[in-house]
Structure formats: C-alpha cells, structure tokens
C-alpha cells in the first residue's frame, strides 16, 4: 500500500502528554490531514494540558482554549467571525475529549450540528475523564473500572452511541477512526474537510494511564479495538449511507480486554456478556450498512 500520510509535522514534539498517549497521536494525524490553515477550539480536556503551559504551545496552529462545554459553540463563533471577515478558507476544528463531547458538551455540539455550522468536530475518545484522574463518562465501556466505578461496582451501562446521535442530525459526514489506522484516519479527515457543514469524527485514543495498559501497547490496542469489533471503523454520509471502512477480523474481545488493567476484575461470564453485546452491536451496524447499500 502506498503511504498517504503527509510528511510535514505541524505538531511539535515538545508537549506534556503521558507516555504512549493516543490523544497526542490523534492531534498529530488530524493536523497532518488538515494542514496549517486551521484554527482549533479546545475545551477542558487532556489536550488543554498536552499543548503545554503558557508561554509554550505544541500544536502549531492557532489555538482557542475554551470552557468545558463550549468546543462546538466557540467553533461556531470562530467560523461566523471568519466568514464575515472573508476568511472562508480556514478550517475550524473543534477538538474535545469524550467527556466534553458525550456529556457536558453535547448540547452545544447538537446545536452546531442542527444549524449545520461549518466545522470539523473531533471527539478523541479515551473513554473516561482522564485529565481529572480517570472518572467514568458516558463513553466509558460496560464493565470498565474507573475511579468512580470501582471494581465492586464497575460501569453497568453501555457506551453512548454518539455516532448514531450525530448521524441523526443528518450532517454531511460522520465517521469513526482509530490512531491504530492512521491512513484511514487521515483519509477521513480529508473527506471531512471537503464535506459541507458540520462534520463529526469519533477517534478512539487509548490512554495507558487510565486504561492501566502498557504505553508500548497503545497502537496494538488501537488496532485490537477495531479488530474485535468493539470500535468498528465506518462512515455515515448525510445520516443515511452507512459504510464499513474495514472488514471484521472478529478477534475475540478477550484479546483486547486482557491487555488492560481496567478490565482485570472481569469474570469469565462478564467477558462473555461483553462479547455478546459487541456481537449484537456489530450486527446492528452491519444491518445499517446493508440497508443503506440496498437503497
């Protein structure tokens, strides 16, 4: 396969991320895909800190740090300002974690998507409030330990289906991506850049600190999460056309779970429940894909 990743590094290496941080790779790849004519709106999240403390900055494009629930609304204002000033070529990138997207920022995100404000909204998902010290969010998967879902009471509800929520807004482009598949990720970033209105990318970004995994397993986990169908790669166009980006390998979920301390407490039957749920969700996704390809 021909290497399609742009060589230019926009993000600089001097940043404050933990070892093996998936979110940092997500920033690096997305900026490679978008280029320098980009303005980023970042609410409270790990990437607030990763950028570096004042007066340092690592991302290489203009950064607007904003309040927790305002990644999308600040981006809407930035875009409106750019439009009225005639600077329409600049891409506005709202960049939030799962807490800032699934939970506290969902109202502003939904508002922007319903209005169709022209922006790419990326949710880099490390599946908990990692910046505050690993508290559960509505993106935390079933069965996972966090500091607010202790081993005796791990999370007992499934992860919120954010892509379906965003697709239901009938926005032009919604997709999932993994830092384990950078070429697919960058291709989707470019596709988002070429699409109209609000675009939503959901990027899985393993977090060794919060997942209790080895820093050198980050890429392995980012691939396994896809191969096990826990986080399948797919696209949704106009909320209607669902397309799988990668065929399933159907690797058993245990291969993914066993590398992470946050799942260490799970019993065999818990793993079976997770496998069952994953299979069911994947079937649901396939059904959506098949239905839309028959249209």
């Amino acid at each position: 396969m021909r290497l399609t990743i742009p060589e230019e590094e926009i993000m600089s290496p001097g940043h404050l991320a933990c070892q093996g941080c998936g979110a940092t790779l997500a920033v690096r790849f997305v900026l490679k895909g978008l280029g320098r004519n980009t303005i980023m709106s970042i609410p409270a999240c790990c990437c607030t800190v990763i950028d570096g403390p004042f007066p340092y900055t690592a991302y290489g494009v203009p950064i607007w740090h904003t309040a927790f629930e305002t990644a999308a609304s600040a981006a809407s204002g930035i875009k409106a300002g750019l439009d009225v000033l005639g600077r329409k070529e600049t891409t506005v990138l709202a960049w939030a974690g799962d807490g800032g997207t699934f939970d506290i920022g969902i109202q502003a995100l939904s508002g922007a998507a319903e209005r169709g404000d022209d922006m790419i909204y990326v949710c880099y998902d490390n599946e908990a409030y990692m910046n505050t010290g690993i508290q559960r969010s509505s993106a935390t998967p079933y069965g996972a330990w966090t500091t607010t879902t202790p081993v005796k009471h791990p999370k007992n509800r499934p992860k919120k289906d954010i892509v379906a929520i965003m697709a239901a807004h009938r926005i032009s482009y919604t997709a999932t991506a993994s830092i384990g598949y950078p070429e697919d990720l960058i291709k989707k970033v470019k596709k988002a850049k070429e699409s109209e209105g609000t675009k939503f990318l959901h990027i899985i970004a393993p977090c060794p600190t919060g997942w209790r995994s080895r820093p050198d397993d980050t890429i392995k986990l980012a691939k396994l999460v896809v191969e096990t169908n826990i986080f399948p790669l797919y696209e949704v166009e106009n909320g209607e056309i669902w397309k799988l980006s990668k065929k399933s390998k159907g690797t058993p979920v245990i291969e993914y779970l066993k590398l992470q301390g946050r799942f260490r407490h799970l019993k065999e039957e818990d793993v079976q429940t997770i496998q069952m749920n994953v299979d069911k969700e994947y079937e649901r996704l396939l059904k959506r894909c098949n239905e839309s390809s028959n249209q």
Partner: peptide, 17 residues
Amino acid sequence: VESEHSAMAASIGASAV
C-alpha cells in the same frame, strides 16, 4: 444558538478572530 451559554461562547469565538 441553542442556549445563552453558547451565545456568549460563540460571541467570544467571533471576537477572537
């Protein structure tokens, strides 16, 4: 916008450019 919180956040974004 869909709330006053977003109204001010968006106004700030616009002013920032």
